[in-house]
Design a protein around this nucleic acid. Structure first.
Lengths: 182, 182
DNA sequence: CCCCTCCTGTAGCAACCGCTACATTTTTCT
DNA sequence: AGAAAAATGTAGCGGTTGCTACAGGAGGGG
């Protein structure tokens, strides 16, 4: 290990904070370095390349996202599927989690553009989200995997609708699915 | 009108084609100009700025997307809501429309990043899509607006899941919602 | 004919990009 | 203490970005 672990973690925390507020698409080395009090020279030295920086950062963000989910909603199961859905949608719309929504869309765009690193990070984030969501489903839910897949897909749609200012349509969809799924 | 309309249309067609295959995020003036046989100098002259180019291009893409939908699925209504959903999902996954999926994610990313032009284009595309979808719902559907909002949100989720290689989860969600919505 | 407006090619500017060569400082090991 | 290794600062390279200054061609109206 060339870079002490706590320093590396501090750098990743700072860069993640910068990316959560300024976006990932146009994040370049010099601003990232400045956000953590170092230089682009150092980032390249310790991570090898920008690809190395972004890869580590994406992995860090994936962990931070799931940690944010677990920190925001007290551990335990929801009392019903519609309530679970409503809780999660409200949580993702919370200002404290809104930065992840933006970065999430940046990751999707880059993944669709062919970046393997972003595609893998997307899968990692999705897997963490799916696991957490399945753990929040009410006890005794029929076919929990199918229900989780449905909620997951719908929630992704809500994020998209929100990003173009169509939250009203998303709310309507959440209401309809919640009713039909209870 | 400083630029003859057919020439402007030809330029927009060519630039749209380039963007549909190479992505919108990193589309810069010189490659765009080369794709239509002119120079960045000319694009700036006739559109004022890159913002002008992108704005016109986004508007053109919005029209092309709806035209692609209408061209692919014969006019008329689907026989059931689940079938309608399945048809639309299959259409958006068709190679002929896949380019729009990628550009769509680029637009969402830029819109979430604060670009007003991309946000407006996103709303325009969403409005066209919603109108077309509502027109395909089976005759006599209860609460067509609510059903359309649900399908729309779910379909956006499918696009997201596909982009990170989770089409299986998306298929499951489509099956569940189709069953519950019939 | 000349002028005037529209259009276009050439060349280049300043800023930013990822990355590197080189020298220097700081730490670590013996 | 002295040598080796790791870490860092300075400066800059070659490339791309959006955009512009300048010159000139093309065509129409006086």
């Amino acid at each position: 290990m060339t870079l002490s672990d706590d320093r590396r973690a501090a750098w990743l925390d700072g860069m993640a904070q910068h990316v959560l507020t300024h976006g990932l698409t146009h994040a370049s080395l010099r601003p990232l370095a400045q956000a953590v009090g170092t230089s682009d020279r150092m980032l390249i030295y310790h991570f090898g390349s920008k690809e190395g920086v972004v890869g580590a950062l994406l992995h860090h963000l994936a962990g931070g996202f799931v940690a944010g989910l677990e920190a925001a909603l007290p551990p335990g199961r929801a009392v019903s599927v519609p309530l679970c859905l409503a809780e999660v949608v409200a949580l993702l719309r919370d200002p404290g989690m809104a930065g992840y929504g933006r970065v999430w869309l940046d990751i999707l765009s880059a993944a669709a553009g062919g970046s393997a690193a972003h595609r893998e990070a997307g899968q990692e984030i999705m897997a963490g989200f799916a696991g957490w969501l399945e753990g929040r489903l009410p006890e005794g839910t029929d076919e929990p995997a199918a229900v989780a897949a449905t909620l997951l897909t719908l929630i992704e749609g809500v994020i998209v609708m929100d990003s173009v200012g169509q939250s009203a349509l998303a709310d309507r969809a959440v209401a309809v699915v919640g009713m039909r799924l209870s």
